[in-house]
Structures are given as C-alpha cells and as structure tokens.
C-alpha cells in the first residue's frame, strides 16, 4: 500500500469506488487504497467465499442493486461480466462509469484483470507489484506432470464437473493433474451424473468444503453424500479445497495449487511403492 500512496495521484483517478460483485471486490480490496473504497458486495466479508474477507470488514456492503449503488455517489463501479446486465446498463444510463471485469479462467485472465483494474484505479505500480508476487508464488507452487500422473475429477455440488477451461481446471493443471473432463470431452461446467463418475473411477475427487450454510440434507450436496461415492473413495483420494479458492480467479489460487500438488506427489510416491512391491513378488 506504501507504493500506492507514493504513486502520483492522477486527476482522473476515481475517489469513490463501488464493487457489486464478489470477484471485483477482491481486485478492489487488493489494489485500491482503503479510503477510496465506498462499498463492496455483501459477500466480500464472508470468509467462506471471499479470500480478502479480512480487508472488507469495515467497508459498507451492497446487494448489487442500482439504487443502493447510487447512494454511495460512486465515480467508478466495478462489476463482473457475470453481474445482472440490467443493473450495469441502468448505472451506465445514469452516467456512472461501469468497468466490467470478465470471469478469470486461466492464469492470463487473472493477470489481465489485475492489470485493467489497477490501470482504472490509477494504481499501475501496485498492480505490477501484485502481479510480480503472484507470478513468483505461482511458479513456485506449480509442478510438472509426474509419472504416473493422476486423473482428477473436480466434482462439486449439484453434480457439477469443472472442465480444464475453468479456474479449478487451471489449478488442477498447475498441480500436474489430468482433468477427467478432458477425458470425457467436456469443457466449462458440465452436469456429470454420479453414475459416470463411478464408472470412470478417477484417482482423485476434488470437492469444495461445505461452508456456506452447509446442511447435510440439502439436495445440492446429495451427490457428495451418496454411499456409492463413499464406496468409490474407499481406495481413492478426496481432496477438499476451500470454497473461497474456487470462487474467483485471483492470486489466491496458489493455495489450491499447493494443496493439490502435495496430494499428487504423495499419491505418485505411493503408486511407485506399490509397483515396486508388485515387482518383488
């Protein structure tokens, strides 16, 4: 933040910034001076889904509705391309600049988003520092695919399987894992029946941590509580990645890469040990 404070303040640099989406909240909290943040979304201070929750605690919340946003008299609104389009259009119509940030699926998207928000805030130097740290930490956490290489199913609530071109696909790839979705020819978010998962028998099932109002009986989680999945996992690995690391593509994904890379290498060593035992027989 010191570097940001010292950087020349451009006349055009916005002073009252509102973010109405969890993912733009992260970028704003990461890149702007705290006194310039007028409001972030109500999800920003939820530790379960927001990586920068600690920074969001004293900042007024909004529920992403145009009227609420107007109350803060913002000179810049950050929204996701995923945000309700009518809200963005309405705000623009009322003369408020809205910066729409695309969803980050790949490392390059994460970097571009940091750059474009930093530029809009007039904090390019802070942006460059954040990027540099991210690149270094990401390179350190990533591993190249080991041999043997594990197949992972990124499988979450409501039978959603994450493809390679999603943020989860990106962190699994950085951990050297092969994505089950690729083997099945699926991209993006697909609906994968539990049956197919059982049939495919991936080495890893990577799920979230039920943290946002987690109730055992909730239907969304029925696939993850099914006895057939429990049976599949008896001799396979389940890795739980905190939900906040799946929520938005940002520098926080380094943590997910670390968890998965460690699990992957452990699995590889076990496989090699098993193979050696088989050879000796």
């Amino acid at each position: 933040m010191l570097a940001a404070a010292l950087s020349p303040i451009l006349a055009a640099s916005p002073q009252r910034i509102v973010s109405i989406n969890l993912c733009t909240d992260q970028l704003l909290l990461m890149l702007a001076e705290p006194h310039k943040i007028a409001s972030v979304s109500y999800l920003a201070m939820n530790y379960a889904v927001s990586p920068a929750a600690a920074l969001a605690r004293r900042i007024p919340q909004n529920y992403g509705q145009a009227e609420e946003v107007l109350r803060f008299k913002p000179d810049l609104v950050l929204a996701s391309a995923f945000t309700v389009h009518s809200t963005n259009a309405l705000l623009r119509k009322l003369g408020i600049p809205v910066l729409e940030i695309p969803v980050a699926d790949e490392i390059e998207d994460i970097r571009n988003n940091i750059k474009s928000v930093a530029t809009a805030l007039g904090n390019s130097e802070t942006g460059a520092k954040v990027l540099e740290t991210f690149d270094r930490r990401f390179a350190k956490a990533s591993i190249s695919p080991p041999r043997p290489r594990a197949v992972a199913a990124l499988y979450r609530e409501n039978n959603i399987l994450y493809g390679s071109n999603t943020i989860a696909g990106t962190f699994a790839r950085a951990a050297g894992m092969e994505n089950l979705a690729d083997q099945l020819g699926l991209t993006g978010f697909s609906d994968l029946p539990l049956e197919i998962l059982i049939e495919q028998r991936p080495d890893f099932v990577i799920a979230g941590i039920r943290s946002l109002h987690a109730q055992r009986g909730l239907l969304a989680y029925r696939n993850l509580h099914h006895p057939a999945l429990a049976r599949l996992l008896e001799n396979r690995s389940l890795v739980r990645i905190p939900d906040r690391l799946w929520a938005c593509g940002g520098p926080e994904i380094v943590d997910a890469v670390r968890i998965l890379a460690a699990a992957h290498l452990k699995w590889r060593n076990q496989k090699i040990a098993e193979r050696d035992v088989d050879k000796q027989r």
């Binding site: 609530e157 409501n158 946002l212 109002h213 909730l218 239907l219 969304a220 696939n223 099914h226």
Partner: peptide
Amino acid sequence: APDPFAAMEMMFWMMGSLSDRS
C-alpha cells in the same frame, strides 16, 4: 436461508426428481 443453490432447490421441490437417491 443463505443458500447459494436456492434456485435449484426450488426447482427440485416443485418439480420432483429421483436422481441420485440412495
């Protein structure tokens, strides 16, 4: 309920389904 899947759950309770029951 602060349920991120509220819309999907509503659809289920109103339209019914037998998938992935155990």
